[in-house]
Structures are given as C-alpha cells and as structure tokens.
C-alpha cells in the first residue's frame, strides 16, 4: 500500500494506492491519522480518494472509523471514487451509513 496526500484550496485529499488488508492496515492508519491532524490544522475537510485503491478488508474499514472518531463530528471524512469492488465492500459493511460516499473527488468538496 502506498499513500499520497495533496492539499487543494478546498480539501486535503489522501490517496491510498494498492490494497489494505491484514498486512498493510497499520501503515494506512499511520498515514490516515496524520492526514486527520493535517486537515484539522489547515481547517480543511479530509477526502479519502479511493480511485487507486484495489480494495480494503475490514482492517482498513476499521481504520477509517478510527480516523472518523479522531476527526470528530466537526470534521467529517468523505470517501470518494471507489471502484466497483470497493463500492460493494462499502455497501456490504454498511459503511455508506457511516460515511458520505461520492463518485469523484470533485463531488466531495
């Protein structure tokens, strides 16, 4: 799993690349929690761009919830551009009830 982060005028966008499973979730957590802090410091919303993510298992999904709790209700995290596999995983896990999910990054901000 690789991680890229980009700051735009409207949001801080974090982009995991590859897959997030039992072997990569800890690195994802480090990156994502750092992004939560960075977004808060910049007073920007955080968008997780899933366009280059193959899939994540429950380990990655749970990291998203840890990040959501860390960010707090005032700083919602948006999930953007899931591929078809990730869209199904989000639906099966009912994460579409926990997170705003949008078709692309532009729609997130």
């Amino acid at each position: 799993m690789e991680w890229q982060v980009e700051t735009t005028a409207a949001a801080l966008v974090g982009r995991p690349i590859g897959k997030i499973d039992e072997t990569t979730w800890e690195a994802f957590q480090v990156h994502l929690l750092a992004a939560v802090s960075q977004a808060a410091a910049a007073s920007l919303p955080l968008v997780v761009d899933l366009s280059d993510l193959d899939y994540m298992s429950s380990r990655g999904l749970r990291v998203l919830k840890i990040a959501k709790d860390s960010a707090g209700a005032e700083a919602p995290i948006t999930l953007a551009a899931p591929n078809d596999r990730m869209r199904q995983i989000i639906e099966i896990s009912r994460y579409d009830m926990l997170f705003k999910v949008v078709a692309d990054v532009a729609s997130a901000v």
Partner: peptide
C-alpha cells in the same frame, strides 16, 4: 451485525 452496526 454488519461491521457498520458494530462500530456505531
């Protein structure tokens, strides 16, 4: 439950 339920 679903994962979302167990975490909310």
């Amino acid at each position: 439950y679903s994962l979302g339920d167990t975490l909310s």
